[in-house]
Simulated scan of single mutants.
Amino acid sequence: MTYSAVMPPRQVKIGDAAIFAGTTPRAIRHYHQIGLLPEPDRGVDGRRRYGYDDMIRLLWVRRMAEAGISLDDMRAAFEDTPDIGEVLGRLEETLAAQEAGIKRQRAAVQRLQAVGSPLGLLSELVTDRLRDLPPGSLRPADLEGLLVTERIFGPHGAAIQAGVFIVLAAHPELRAENDRLEAAEAALDDGVDPEDPRVEDLAMQRCAYQLALNRASTAAGLDAEEERLFDTLDIFGDSTEKEEPRLMSAIKAVTKMPYDWSPARNRCVERAGQLLGEALAAADAADCQRAPA
Results as ranks from 00 to 15, higher is better:
M257Y: 11
A183C: 09
N214M: 13
E144K: 09
A176I: 05
A186L: 11
K252F: 14
V192L: 06
S262E: 01
G120T: 02
P172S: 08
A184V: 05
L36S: 03
G51A: 10
D196S: 06
W60Q: 15
Q33M: 08
Q98A: 13
A208V: 02
A216K: 00
L112V: 07
E195R: 14
E185W: 10
A18G: 11
G35M: 01
H171D: 10
C288R: 15
L222M: 05
V6M: 13
I251Q: 14
Q161S: 11
A96V: 06
G277R: 11
Y31E: 00
E226H: 14
Y52R: 15
S217C: 09
R42P: 02
A212P: 02
D80L: 11
D201P: 03
A27V: 08
G116Q: 09
T218S: 12
F165S: 13
P25Y: 05
V109Q: 12
A159P: 01
D193Y: 05
L147S: 12
A5D: 09
P40H: 04
V269M: 11
A208G: 04
T23F: 01
R26P: 04
L143N: 00
R267C: 06
S239W: 14
R111M: 09
V254P: 01
A169I: 06
E185D: 10
R42E: 00
M204Y: 08
V269K: 13
H156P: 04
M1V: 07
L147E: 10
L58S: 05
A220G: 06
E92A: 15
H32N: 01
Y209S: 10
E227F: 13
L119Y: 06
I56N: 13
D223A: 13
L119E: 07
T2K: 13
R246Y: 08
D142R: 01
A212F: 03
P38R: 02
V199G: 00
